[in-house]
Write a protein that binds this DNA or RNA. Structure first.
Length: 743
DNA sequence: TCGCCAAGACTTTTT
DNA sequence: GTCTTGGCGA
């Protein structure tokens, strides 16, 4: 009898999916079917073990992973997962905190502050405490506070061994007070209070621990201490906890993630069953071998031997460009070659880099070449000013005590309320022990009969007008649907004419507002609270980026993304650029071995995204805002066995002899077959070069330029190096580029 | 109070 | 090279 649930699993996967009760630790190498195991396990519990979905909690890190899991499992079991808790750590905690708000220092309709809001709040706390922002940068103070929360330390428990720590602790305390006054929590609070609630409240702990017979966790290596403790509490009664992860792919240390939680798990649950998934279904063996060369240099991990039945595959192409522009051109030209030869489609390719700043040159090169591309997770939709404005209006309606939102929108669009007036309002409100929002509402409703009217003076009328508007929204939010409320806010404040000045940017801004409105329509039946929570907890990759990338993928475009954003994805051909000391590994990790190990894992994650072909690219010289710097090749390159690499590019010190190979343009030789597999272009074999150094040429895409060099390759193709006025150096295939000789 | 302009900072990754 | 911040004038 065929078994749709188990038939197509390999022995290890099967072992994991059908494991009995208890603690199961699945260490899943990249491409080893981790998601599959997790979804099948869930389906197996429900279908085969008759566990009611109500008894299960399954946590992930991204909304994308959560909804993917939900879809897959729903498909497998052919019914809805009633009562299940399935979602991100943050969303699950938010649910817990709203339910149990009675035991917490905030109300159940708390708002979630995003990193922008957190930043503003830290700054305000520091100003209140008269701490010099030049000496203690708010970003780093905030990072320190965040780290304390991740370690479950309250302001009172924060260490004060140094002056710096003492400053952080003081700001932390003030910051917390302000959050509470705003009835707000930050990202870290969700986990912090979730863990604290269960730790300090035995009755509640028992309530949830008894309910959740099974706890399942994805990306376990990315958990921080708060998350780890939360999981321990949740599984403290039935002790059935199934975690899937890979220490080697832990790349969020800076956010408090501690891959050593994997080791901690083994120590805390000595009876746990440990299952290794080592068969890789994604990459060729060459790619896996290279990945192993890189990751084996790290310690404190469970060694894994990834293997593939996909064959050896092509060698990895290493390309050293003269500068960052040439680096980008190499990537784009190579892809153009495939696309021109119809050997691949644009969506087969991804270009990965360490920092977002690196994407610019690459984007430019793609633009010039007319190849469609899209960015993953770069500029954040919801960090856009206009989007944030609207969100803050809505948050204010939801929770008038939200001072951060109030301050942001009280003068949007400008309505004569400035710093002075705002300060008056805040002072008057504080005198009465109320929030500015409440005072504002009172002014709006009572106008000059309001208790606040006399103490504010001249500008009370302006405040009252705005207050009346706000009161109108608050009063009607129960009757109005979410979208109607949305529209009403827009009309009342005259937002369209404010942002849309009919320039391109204006249109763009208004388009973003419309996009947000579309998002709101999805939440019609769930209401404002859920909409706002979702906006705060949904990462940018998750929301409309998804729709955007989906539609753009159909249109077939190359994916540009950071190495961090690449985790969990796969592409036929992957370019990793910027393999230079200081970039990858990043200069900031130079002095810390742990950080360096993480850079290595980041590279490892990048390598293992490639299914068929990997390109490792660097530039000898690159410009960092104006200045040009000469860099050393990344130390990670040296770790990869020479036999796996094919050198291309300007200069390959160790490989001067194979000059021919250096000049090869196009896909690498296939190591497993004798005949070089190379894209052949449509042109007839050229016997002598048509273009000569010094010639002036014109190309359709790049305009005019000067030929630097031209030569005939082994395959008969003529490659021409041209310096274009518009884009600088380019190496093109004559038969493809259609260069016109200018007299 | 608001909008413009110039100087300065800043580039690691983001649930 | 780009975004943010702060100062200054209207």
């Amino acid at each position: 009898m065929s078994d749709l649930l188990l038939d197509d699993l390999n022995p290890q996967q099967n072992l994991a999916v059908t494991a009995g009760d208890g603690q199961i630790l699945v260490l899943a190498g990249p491409g080893s079917g981790k998601t599959r195991v997790l979804t099948r396990r869930l389906a197996y519990l429900i279908e085969r073990q008759n566990v009611p979905s109500y008894d299960i909690i399954a946590v992930t890190f991204t909304n994308k992973a959560a909804s993917e899991m939900e879809n897959r499992v729903t498909n497998l079991v052919q019914r809805n997962l009633e009562g299940i808790w399935l979602g991100t750590f943050h969303a699950m905690c938010a649910r817990l905190l709203r339910r149990e708000a009675a035991a917490l220092p905030f109300n159940s309709n708390f708002v979630i502050f995003d990193s922008d809001d957190q930043q503003t709040l830290v700054k305000r706390a520091m100003r209140d405490l008269k701490i010099d922002e030049k000496i203690h940068r708010p970003v780093s103070v905030h990072a320190a506070i965040s780290a304390l929360k991740n370690d479950l330390l309250s302001p009172a428990e924060a260490p004060t061994r140094s002056y710096r720590e003492e400053v952080v602790a003081r700001v932390y305390a003030r910051y917390e007070d302000m959050l509470r006054l705003n009835n707000a929590v930050d990202f870290d609070d969700l986990l912090f209070w979730g863990a604290k609630l269960l730790r300090e409240n035995p009755a509640l702990r028992e309530k949830y621990a008894m309910r959740f017979r099974h706890v399942l966790v994805d990306e376990f290596q990315d958990t921080n201490l708060a998350q780890y403790e939360l999981l321990k509490h949740l599984s403290s009664y039935h002790k059935n906890i199934f975690v899937v992860g890979d220490e080697d792919q832990s790349i969020y240390r800076w956010r408090g993630a501690d891959y050593r939680n994997v080791l901690r798990f083994e120590k805390d649950f000595p009876d746990c069953e440990k299952i290794l998934l080592e068969q890789n279904y994604r990459s060729t063996q060459v790619i896996l071998d290279a990945a192993r060369c890189v990751i084996n240099q790290n310690h404190n991990r469970t060694p894994k031997h990834l293997f593939s039945d996909r064959g050896q595959g092509n060698k990895i192409v290493k390309y050293e460009a003269v500068d960052d522009r040439a680096e980008a051109n190499f990537v784009v030209d190579t892809i153009a070659g495939y696309l021109g030869g119809k050997k691949a489609k644009a969506s087969d390719f991804a270009v990965m880099y360490r920092t977002n700043a690196q994407s610019r040159l690459i984007e430019e090169a793609f633009m010039h070449a007319g190849i469609p591309y899209h960015l993953v997770g770069a500029q954040r939709f919801y960090g856009r000013r206009e989007v944030k404005d609207i969100i803050c209006f809505l948050r204010l309606v939801e929770n008038p005590s939200d001072e951060v939102s109030l301050q942001r929108v009280i003068a949007v669009p400008p309505r004569g309320i400035g710093e002075k007036t705002l300060a008056n309002l805040q002072f008057a409100a504080a005198q009465a022990g109320k929030s500015s929002g409440d005072a504002l509402l009172d002014l709006g409703r009572q106008v000059d009969r309001s208790e606040f009217w006399p103490s504010i003076g001249r500008s009370a009328g302006l405040l009252s007008d705005f207050g009346a508007m706000l009161a109108g929204w608050v009063d009607s939010k129960a009757q109005l649907s979410l979208v109607s409320l949305f529209d009403r806010v827009l009309t009342d404040v005259g937002y369209e004419s404010y942002v849309n000045d009919n320039t391109d940017e204006g249109e763009d801004r208004w388009e973003n507002v419309q996009e947000l409105r579309r998002l709101a329509t999805d939440f019609q039946d769930r209401g404002l609270t859920e909409f706002l929570q979702n906006l705060a907890l949904v990462s940018d990759q998750d929301t409309l980026k998804d729709e955007e990338t989906d539609s753009q993928r159909d249109a077939s475009s190359v994916t540009l993304l950071t190495l961090h954003a690449a985790k969990g994805l796969e592409f036929r051909q992957v370019f990793i650029v910027g393999l230079d000391e200081g970039i990858l590994p990043h200069s900031r990790s130079r002095d810390d071995p742990e950080e360096m190990a993480e850079e290595r894992r980041l590279f490892y994650v990048g390598i293992t995204r490639a299914k068929d072909q990997l390109y490792l690219v660097r530039a000898e010289r690159r410009s960092t805002f104006g200045d040009v710097d000469y860099g050393e090749p990344s130390r990670f390159l040296a770790d990869i066995d020479d036999s796996l690499i094919l050198n291309q590019g300007k200069r390959s010190a160790s490989r001067r002899a194979s000059y021919e190979a250096d000049m090869t343009w196009g896909p690498a030789y296939n190591t497993s077959s004798r005949a070089p597999r190379r894209v052949t272009f449509t042109s007839p074999q050229a016997k002598s070069s048509r273009y000569k150094a010094g010639m002036r040429v014109r190309s359709a895409s790049w305009g005019e330029g000067i030929v630097l060099e031209s030569k005939i390759e082994a395959d008969g193709e003529e490659t021409v190096d041209v310096h274009f006025e518009s884009v600088g150096f380019k190496r093109v295939i004559a038969s493809l580029a259609n260069l016109e000789i200018v007299e």
